[in-house]
Design a protein around this nucleic acid. Structure first.
Lengths: 231, 231
DNA sequence: CCAATAGTGTCTGTAAGACAATATGTT
DNA sequence: AACATATTGTCTTACAGACACTATTGG
């Protein structure tokens, strides 16, 4: 450690957001086209620097969530820190990544601040040909993996759904995020058996095609016991 | 977002270490007595600021690990970020916490840089009467919980043991970290059934008192399949 | 022999996965 | 009726936990 008059270095602090949703039964992530210098024109995760010295980090994440995606109250949780010295050509930038889960939304992302924000299927975003700015490919991979794990142990899946939903719709969430097919019969019993996960929403019904299904809403429990197990 | 001449704020970046080990069948954490101003004299986790603008964060964690605890090559993994605006009275300090796991060591922590480094039982460190500097109580709680989860899904437990160990010794790791008692017979079969977790180390033996036990060493597998389940 | 720990065998309940069968809507 | 989806029931298998039992050392 250097002598007393030594001052520790300061770094720029950024937040990056992995905002996931479901569209057409596939997992999508919100990407923006960069409008400024480093990686200008490339696709990137929404994010930005702290506004001022006193802004809370999670508050900054919520601010970006609102500014760049127009999403006010969605599930938000810390993902990881990315601070490799060379990750940003502008200098030493340490980024705190957050994972956000949004329910199904209308096609155009209304009220968007950053031009060119668009939902991209995760499959396409991670395809070999797609280039993402900075280390955002790594962050996206980590975010998707975190979502998969959270689906096992918490009631996060209901955050992908609307206020009320059928068990089939909930199953589609699991299938899309996990990337697997599940047996509807076993899924039905499993979800029903995890008390507190979902609660019936009156005897209401729906009609896509076939027998109408019962409607449910998110239950009071956040940690699932027993957990959902990936095949 | 402010106008072009605006410059984002800079923050101080620190690392904090939750270094866990086993002593007398109890989980212990390495704490140091602070020798400088904020919280002078209080107990704190080892840690410090980045050396210079270009130091990698994990490298800084390893440096502190070596400087403050004299531990060179132990298991190290990122834990979380703590950046609440008021957490450090000196200004805006964002800390990246790491979790380190060390095998059993000789009583005095040799080659220690910070004076007053000592192993403290986690039970005592988290007791209501014990005051820790900054938000280190929260960081320690998160670190212990992370260790508990990692013990379920990875072969982390072997990092608490010496090069070779008996199944009883491995069981003591689980009991100490999880804070529960396990059935030796079921634990024996369970561990043996998780292939790749531990491998026999020749027909060698040991003699504390009672029948000698077979010796094992860490296997090639890091993620346990099936996982160990907490009672 | 007795105490203590290591290691094996057996049983039972719970839960997951496969899949038949029934219910209730649409066309 | 034919079809599609929802919901229920049953069966098989795997595994966790309880616990009797055998094996091998030291005193």
């Amino acid at each position: 450690m250097p002598d007393p008059p030594w001052q520790p270095p300061r770094v720029l602090l950024a937040v990056d957001l992995v905002i996931l949703t479901l569209r057409e039964a596939r997992l999508h992530v919100l990407l923006v086209e960069r409008g400024i210098d480093p990686f200008l024109g490339a696709l990137a995760l929404p994010g930005g620097f702290l506004c001022d010295e006193h802004e809370d980090i999670e508050a900054a994440a919520r601010r970006e969530l609102s500014e760049e995606a127009g999403l006010p109250d969605v599930h938000l949780e810390p993902l990881a820190v990315y601070g490799e010295p060379g990750r940003d050509p502008r200098g030493r930038v340490v980024s705190v990544a957050y994972l956000a889960i949004a329910p199904r939304l209308p096609e155009p992302v209304a009220g968007t601040d950053a031009a060119g924000a668009c939902w991209t299927s995760v499959e396409h975003a991670l395809a070999p040909g797609t280039k993402l700015a900075f280390d955002h490919r790594r962050i996206l991979i980590d975010g998707v993996e975190r979502a998969r794990i959270q689906l096992e142990h918490t009631a996060l899946a209901t955050s992908f759904c609307a206020e009320t939903f059928t068990i089939s719709e909930l199953q589609q969430v699991y299938e899309a995020v996990w990337g697997v097919r599940l047996d509807p019969r076993n899924f039905y019993r499993k979800v029903q058996g995890t008390r507190g996960f979902i609660v019936a929403d009156g005897p209401m019904r729906k009609t896509p095609n076939g027998r109408p299904a019962r409607l449910f809403r998110a239950g009071p429990v956040h940690v699932l016991n027993p957990p959902m197990t990936r095949p």
